[in-house]
Design a binder for these strands. Structure first.
Lengths: 137, 137
DNA sequence: ATAGGACTTAGAGCGGGCTCTAGCTCAAGC
DNA sequence: GCTTGAGCTAGAGCCCGCTCTAAGTCCTAT
């Protein structure tokens, strides 16, 4: 199947601007085919690649690293160990990001519970009002 | 206890530049105390707040939102429902970030397994060489 | 008393990742 | 034939979050 840039944008969630930008930046493995009028025509394979890029970006891989990966794939068979290393590094980065998120999440969840409790008691607390300070939110 | 800016930077992982920047940006609840020479003196409470800010940033909260939260805390008692709402929204954002990370992670883990397998077979595959193409890495 | 090091300010600069603009071409529909 | 809409290029612009600079102050140790 063949798709126009707008269609690809709609499917992948990237903007058409971003798609052209990614191409300029060398994130694609091969050149994107053009129709006789010079417009980009994307294949299913291209869409798959764009989706991979989107996932890599979402997980915080810098464009420069994605480009490096694309370069390796483009160079073809023989550099699999390098590609593997690159992916494994990213795997680890994602894991530590998840770790950081979960630390942050539990801190926030704790605060949420505190506020919930405070508010639940709040109506009652209006009696002896103020002085429930300290804590340091 | 009282701490200088360098000490706070060392403890929280933020740079001294970032600490001053956060202050200018209004992320602190109260003014930071100064010594007679005009230098910042941080209390344990300030450090706690900086650490909260650091966690919020790490989990992707924009400075503007942290400022809004600081504003609410500064305004004192009465706006707890707003603070709670703000925290809950962020909780949800973190949860969807974790979701995105885990989607990305499983995509990458899958690829890692593919490459590992390919490499394990690789030595053998050198026999009938090439043609193991397709896939679209 | 002098050198070093930590601190101060206001403001400029930077890197990443888009995002938008201007001016153009093309294809389809009325 | 003309409008509308999608696409094209090269390059400028923008937002965020720092990060660094310049020029100066102050404390401490030798």
């Amino acid at each position: 199947m063949a798709y126009g840039i707008g269609e690809v944008a709609a499917r992948t969630g990237l903007s058409v601007h971003a798609l052209r930008f990614y191409e300029r930046e060398g994130l694609f493995v091969g050149p994107i085919v053009r129709d006789p009028g010079g417009r980009r025509v994307y294949s299913d394979g291209d869409i798959g690649w764009v989706e991979l890029c989107a996932r890599l970006r979402e997980t915080g891989m810098p464009l420069e690293v994605i480009r490096k990966y694309a370069d390796l794939v483009r160079d073809g068979v023989g550099n699999e160990p390098e590609r593997l290393a690159l992916l494994r590094e990213h795997q680890e980065r994602i894991e530590s990001q998840m770790q950081a998120l979960s630390v942050g999440l539990s801190m926030i969840s704790y605060k949420v519970r505190v506020y919930e409790k405070r508010l639940a008691e709040g109506t009652a607390a209006a009696l002896w009002s103020s002085s429930t300070s300290s804590s340091g939110d």
